[in-house]
Amino acid sequence: MARDDDSIIKVRGLKKSFGTHVVHEGLDLDVRRGEIIGIVGGSGTGKSVLLQQIVGLLKPDAGRIEVFGESVRDTSPDEYRRLRRRWGVMFQDGALFSSLTVRQNVEAPMREQLHLPDDLRETLAGIKVRMVGLPENAQDKYPSELSGGMRKRAGFARAIALDPEIVFLDEPTAGLDPIGAAAFDRLIGQLQSALGLTVFMVTHDLDSLHAICDRVAVLAEKRVLAVGTMAEMLKIDHPWVREYFHGPRARAALGPDATDEVG
């Protein structure tokens, strides 16, 4: 476990239920500054729910969530605004505003949070759009004119528009072809090191887990079952974790050696 002082996100004793359906109970998680952490878990284990609680879109029933050492739950609207500027969220499939062009989408958070001259804002948004590897002619296109991969890139550009310290990515590579997914992984890695980001990534993609994640957290049985590097995950003796990291897809992603030596 990380020492408390270098945790940028700290979740303690989180409880969340919808009606009688309990999603999280006694969930603890630490995310260290500057790492890429991958959150995995079966469908319905509340990966996205956890993400939404950390960024304050959902209210937990009980427990404590601290980001940058401040509790997300007990902030005043002003503090929350300030806190929110320090992270960026990329939703599945980008969640771009369909009536705005790509550049206007990236400009949107700047327009809301800062008072910048128009030309400066446009220039900075243009840099972000180029950074995520979108071609020059994509800047003035509308989301409906883009492919799924490009929409995800544009969503990522919007998430990093304000140079956040943390980016939350919800299934960044889902629905991309293997080449596109690998390129997106590389992009996350590059920007993470260039901008010094902490990346909180919900994913099912074993290739991305293997390629870019420093640590992996497994959600199961309503809590974080295990946190550690990929190598540590392979040694964990839990039916679901074994199934996940030793299944045929995992073997293909990690190579036969990695799974056989413990299997």
């Binding site: 243009g126 180029r130 590059q190 920007l191 260039a194 901008l195």
Partner: peptide, 11 residues
């Protein structure tokens, strides 16, 4: 790192 990343993406 940041300067390099931005310099590759200047308008």
């Amino acid at each position: 790192q940041i300067l390099d990343a931005v310099s590759q993406n200047m308008p």
